[in-house]
Design a protein around this nucleic acid. Sequence first.
DNA 1: AACGCGGGGCC
DNA 2: GGCCCAGCGTT
Length: 307
Amino acid sequence: MQNPTELHRDVLAWYDEHARDLPWRRPDTSAWGVLVSEVMLQQTPVSRVEPAWHRWMAAWPAPTDLAAAPAAEVLRAWDRLGYPRRALRLRECAQAIVAHHGGRVPGTEAELLALPGIGSYTAAAVAAFAYGRRVVVLDTNVRRVLGRLFDGHALPAPSLTQAERQRAAARLPAHTPDSVRWNVGLMELGALVCTARAPRCEACPLRGYCAWRRAGRPADPHAGLRRRQAWHGTDRQARGKIMALLRDRPDGPVSEEEVLRAVADGADPAALADPGQPARALASLVTDGLVAPADSDDGGVAAYRLP
DNA sequence: AACGCGGGGCC
DNA sequence: GGCCCAGCGTT
């Protein structure tokens, strides 16, 4: 094994040369801009986040602005980034920042972790990338890179283990500015070179000492056991259709009949076999606060709108 | 630890 | 058609 300093130097040098020019990495981006980007990037690819982030920051450049925005407007701006509950939580996060931190994004992991929609990854990412703190940032990219480099595993285990946390902490560069570039450098390496599907090992700065490559790039030991996300015919798809319909109708409530018909529209046979699904999906959206009952323009008929 | 939760792009 | 994507909150 090479000494830690050499590994650090290789990652930092690679990052300095190959880093993408993403808007939330610009030095003049506010901590709020970084936080917004991190929430949007939770399970949504960079390519789809970038335009949404620009529009979002233009509309609500500070926590105070988003905190005062109507939820329906926020959900429409979220558009099709997916997991729209993230938009509501981001708004609640802004309100908590106003209520408890004077409208300024807090800088410690513990304070960030206490905010709605901010988990262990996002808290660490904001502390590191917005405030330059020396913290362990472990996202799916970093987990995959470290797992290949040191464990020889193709892909990380389904859930983050304590051993991974400790190993990542032990490998973190001692100096503060280096630790930030190490974190973002490993993430960038995972996004551009050490990818999940078709890694470009020939372009990797760590190819000389990667356990996975040395072992002949064996297949994922968890293959087949990995959690798969169902979509066609599921409640999730039904919820997505309802949200898309209500997003596109800013002028007024939509009757329950039309909402339920939109779900059945183009549904696959599996969904049609469950006639209760549309109503169930709608009810769950109301429970989650993503949809609200509304007074129909045709009195007495149930109708719905964005909250 | 396991599950629910969007949506799209890529092989 | 399966898999992946800068995860979080709940149970």
